[in-house]
């Protein structure tokens, strides 16, 4: 059974985690504040918050992201942050915003964030697992897998052209 709360860490470890998260976020192009919270959340490891301006946007990375990254066979910290950067791009990228459906569902947004994240992730393995995440969301929402695969292919082709 997973622990309910992370073990305590020193101030220097806390700072090191923040720096690592921020380094990854900046490499992926994230603009805004990056915060680290030493707690387990139900978000899966990180959450993006859109603010009034892009400079005020916030990326909160928590202990869950580091726990998953450490297992070696779950989403890496890079993949988790790439997904959140995907959310920022969906909110802030001019061309993407213009072509997104108004009032899109949460599932659609999560799928798109994963696919955007898959294209900006530096490690192909991270890109692949974000694509699996997108496929999984579509299948879970009731779409047959063959159709989900075709939709993902079409969206990836579109995103490559726009980004």
């Amino acid at each position: 059974m997973q622990e309910q709360s992370p073990k305590s860490i020193s101030a220097s470890e806390h700072q090191a985690r923040l720096e690592r998260a921020e380094t990854i976020a900046r490499r992926l192009g994230f603009v805004g504040r990056v915060e680290y919270r030493h707690a387990y959340s139900r978000f899966g490891g990180a959450q993006y918050g859109m603010a009034a301006t892009i400079e005020q946007d916030v990326l909160v990375v928590d202990a869950e992201a580091f726990r998953r990254d450490a297992t070696g066979d779950d989403f890496s910290l890079e993949a988790i942050i790439a997904h959140e950067r995907g959310h920022q791009l969906l909110c802030r990228h001019e061309r993407l915003r213009r072509n997104l459906p108004r009032g899109m569902s949460t599932v659609t947004e999560e799928v798109l964030a994963s696919l955007v994240g898959s294209l900006i992730a530096e490690n192909p393995r991270d890109g692949q697992i974000l694509i699996l995440k997108a496929l999984s969301e579509l299948v879970e929402s009731g779409m047959p897998l063959g159709e989900a695969s075709q939709r993902v292919e079409d969206v990836l082709t579109y995103l490559e052209a726009v980004l």
Partner: peptide, 11 residues
């Protein structure tokens, strides 16, 4: 958010 579902479960 990426959600809590493990990659192994997704696969």
């Amino acid at each position: 958010m990426i959600g809590a579902k493990k990659l192994s479960t997704i696969r």
